[in-house]
Simulated assay, not measured.
Amino acid sequence: MHVMIFGCGYSGTAIARAFAGDGVRISGTTRSAEKMDALGQAGIKAYLFDGETLDEGLIQALADVTHLVQSIAPGKADPLLRLLGEDSASLLPRLEWIGYLSTVGVYGDHKGAWIDEETPCVPVSGRSKERLEAEAGWLAMGRQRGVPAAVLRLSGIYGPGRNAFCNLEKGTARRLIKKDQVFNRIRVEDIGAATRFLSDHSLGGLYNITDNRPGPPQDVIVEAARLMGVEPPPEQAFETAELTPMARSFYGENKRVSNAKLRAAGFELSFPDYPMSLAQLWQDGRWRG
């Protein structure tokens, strides 16, 4: 097995860890030469990829890739789909499985209602519309190649080094209050495990990769502060808070995302809800990363 992860950042590295084992080669791309050493230390053969060209070394590496994971944001068009074009069969002759990391943002706003993979997508932001187009492209490639292509729609990602404890320590945590607003989350280790699970079972199609417990974002801050033994930041009304346009746009979408399809396939989350996950992060001391 040779796993190639395009965009081997926070989630990509967790996916690499989930695949690591005897007989598994893991490669990953980064835009930054400075990050190549860190990937190497994690057991990942690193390649530079700028989203514009496939250099000779990367082309040679693709020749025996069996499992392709794409986690790079598409922009106006998915950079890898564009470069592979009609040549995917010659560039990836041994391909057995495709995983594409997307976002639950493609669903848009559903006024806090429960949604699943059958729910129509009404994306609000331009970036979510681009993700939806990229999803269609990867599913089409899977059909064209006759291999399973799984689209992993991720909720808000957190884990070691990226969590409410870190934000409280840095003084950047905010307790924004917007009536009836909820979000789902997903622990980064569960992203890795779910990717491995879908590939091991040769599963394709749409899957929500999300926890069991959507909830108000301010409750996560309060729970983390309780565990740390510190005072949570004061409540702020969302309507009057100073926010970047991107941060404000997240609050324009309100939904409860179901993971029933993933669980019905047999996958069990290691971190099914944020209270137990935060407690675990705090107790094992790895919350700083």
Rank of each mutant, 00 (worst) to 15 (best):
L80W: 05
L139P: 02
Y47L: 08
G51N: 07
G229C: 10
L139S: 05
D64T: 13
A14M: 06
G142E: 02
Q181I: 08
T103N: 05
S125W: 02
A260I: 04
L58D: 04
L139T: 08
S277F: 08
M228F: 11
G204R: 02
E235F: 13
R263P: 02
L152H: 00
A164N: 05
M228E: 10
A279E: 14
L58E: 05
N163I: 01
C166W: 07
P272Y: 05
A279C: 15
V182S: 04
T240R: 15
T30D: 06
L83F: 07
K179Y: 10
R213F: 15
D200N: 09
V3N: 02
I44K: 01
I59D: 12
P216E: 12
P217R: 05
Y107A: 03
C8H: 04
S270E: 10
G51V: 09
A164W: 01
L48A: 09
S27C: 13
Q181F: 10
G192I: 07
S32C: 14
L132N: 02
G7A: 06
D37C: 15
E52V: 13
G161I: 04
N212W: 07
G289T: 06
G40F: 10
N163Q: 08
T66V: 12
P120I: 06
A224L: 08
E117Q: 11
G146W: 09
G51E: 06
S155L: 06
D219A: 15
D78E: 11
K178Y: 11
E169P: 05
W138R: 00
L206V: 10
G108H: 03
V147S: 07
A38N: 09
A33P: 12
Y207P: 00
P234M: 07
L262E: 00
G9S: 08
A136T: 10
H67M: 11
R248E: 02
G23A: 13
E235L: 11
V188Q: 01
I186V: 10
Q283W: 12
E56M: 08
R248G: 03
T119Q: 04
E96T: 13
A173H: 05
L154E: 00
V69T: 05
A38M: 09
L281F: 11
L91V: 15
R175A: 12
L154Y: 00
Q41F: 10
F271L: 07
K76L: 14
E253N: 01
M141D: 03
L269W: 00
K35V: 14
A265Y: 03
K76P: 12
E56N: 15
A193Q: 12
A16H: 01
Y207A: 03
E56F: 14
R25N: 13
D116S: 11
R94M: 15
R94N: 09
Q280M: 10
T240G: 13
I157N: 00
L154G: 00
L83H: 09
R174D: 14
G23D: 07
G75S: 14
G159T: 03
E86T: 14
E56C: 08
G192F: 03
V124L: 12
